[in-house]
Every structure is written in structure tokens, then in C-alpha cells.
Design a protein around this nucleic acid. Sequence first.
DNA 1: CTTACGGCCTGGGTGC
DNA 2: TGCACCCAGGCCGTAA
Length: 283
Amino acid sequence: MPELPEVETIARGLRAALPGRRIVGVRLGKTDFIDDPAAIEQQLPGARIAAVRRLGKFLLLDLEPSNGSAHNSSLLIHLGMTGRLVTCDPAAPVPLHTHVFFALDDGRELRYTDVRRFGRMGLLQDTSREKSLDSLGLDPLEASEEQFIALLKDRRARVKALLLDQHVLRGIGNIYADESLWRARIHPMRLGAKLTVDELRRLHRSVRDVLNEAIRLRGSSIADYVDSEGNLGGFQRRHRVYQRDGKKCFRCGAKIRRAIVAGRSSHFCPRCQPAPRTRRTQT
DNA sequence: CTTACGGCCTGGGTGC
DNA sequence: TGCACCCAGGCCGTAA
């Protein structure tokens, strides 16, 4: 599932391939995941890609229209669970479930493939006033320790839910929430407000370490994720709890457990990450 | 306002 | 071989 490290890896790959390129053709398959398919078909041909940005799990392709200055726009892309954004030779075989083709002026092609179509794509006329974007929380790699602690310390929600909440911190999903909590030795069911300052500091450190290492290894490939050139990531080999239920904890040897927390399957070590006492929910 | 929860979208993988 | 069911992330509506 593309989370911050995977989307960052894709963004870096696209930054090497797209800025300066002009889109010369658009072809769409199924469009039920696209906000306004007609706008994309009409406005993108001729547009020049000026920059590639990442905001949490969103990708933004900043566009300049073909005819002079006018208004700039951005193509907003969210990969959902199974979205892939790959540049390739137009003659390359087309994978099943490929629904968007952008022909580029260097003879290459940018394709969007998405088995589940949980992803989203849309054209923003004014990025700065996009409500879905300005309600996003801080980037976890940019937040200072003080900012990070302030975000969590007065919240009564479970820390797992807070880490997953894109309005608190942007970009963390299920894999990196579980991996970060394991590293910080914090149970996912703990409440934000009940965490000690020391635990909050550890969590801040762990989130940053996990995300940075995952970016270094080009993301986690579990099922669908590939980078912008179609290559697998490597961080799945470093997972300590995610999808390791029943296996031994790398730190203490206890059996990793899986439980639903905040509506998401959560993986943790019941010994290294002690459950909160006050809740009757057992672990 | 904050939090919890269920449902919805889709289709590959799994287990019977 | 078939087929029902689970599950994933984000979002939304509802209720407390």
C-alpha cells in the first residue's frame, strides 16, 4: 500500500522523468475514480509538467498550460491501495487494470494502473485553496519534537488512530504506524493523552527512523507497490511486526499478535508493547 | 468539537 | 471446478 515512503519514492522517480515534459495525448479507460474526466481530456494535452510534489500520500503534478501564462493547475493523484504510476515505453505491454495513459513529448508514456480503483485523480485549478489538501496535518518528517508532542498529548483517541489520521500527521498508513509503535514500544491501543513525554519522544524518533529507512530502501512491496519504473521496494524485508502475527518478536521472542484497533488490523508484540490497563479490551 | 463505529467502494486471494 | 467471504485505505454519516 502506498504510504509516505512509497509515494516519496515514486515522486523522486517522476522528478527525474517528468519536469519539463509536455503531455501530448491523453487516453482514459474506466473513469469512475476520476473527478472530472472530461476536464483532464481537454486541458492536459499541450500542458507542460513544471514540477512533481508530494503532500502526505498525495502526488501533485504542477502544470503550465500551453498558451502562455494563464492559470496554472495541478493534477492530483492518490494511489489508494493498489494504484501504480509508471513511466515506460508506449510499446510496453499494458498491464490489466491500466486506466490512464499520458503520452509525453519525449516519446515515453506515463500510465496509471489500479486494480481496485480506490485511488483518486483530479484536476485542481487552484492548489492553494484545495480544501482536501489544506486540512492535512504536518508532514511527520518535518514536524519537530515539540510539534509532534503537541499533536498527540491532549488527544483521547488511541495512538494508532491518531497516527493514521491524515489530519493529524499526513502520510502514515497501517504499515508504518505498526512498525513505528513497535520500535517505540507503545501499544496501539494506548490513548494519546496517556502517553508519557518520554514515550512521545520515542514515538517521534521511531516514526522518523522508520520512514527514513523505508525511503532509503524505496518503500515496502507487499502485493502491488512498485516505483515509477516498475521496480519493487525493499523495506518489506525489514518489517518487524506488520503481517508477522504468530511469529517471534525480533526484540523479545514473544509471539506477535494481531488485533483490530481503530478499525484497522494492528500488529504488535504483547510483551514489548504492554497493553493499557484501564480499558477492558484484552490483548 | 471529539471520538467510535459501520458501511461503502472493488476484486484478488483464500479456504472449503 | 466453483463460490462465498475476507480484507485493504479513505471517507462519510450517525450516534454518543
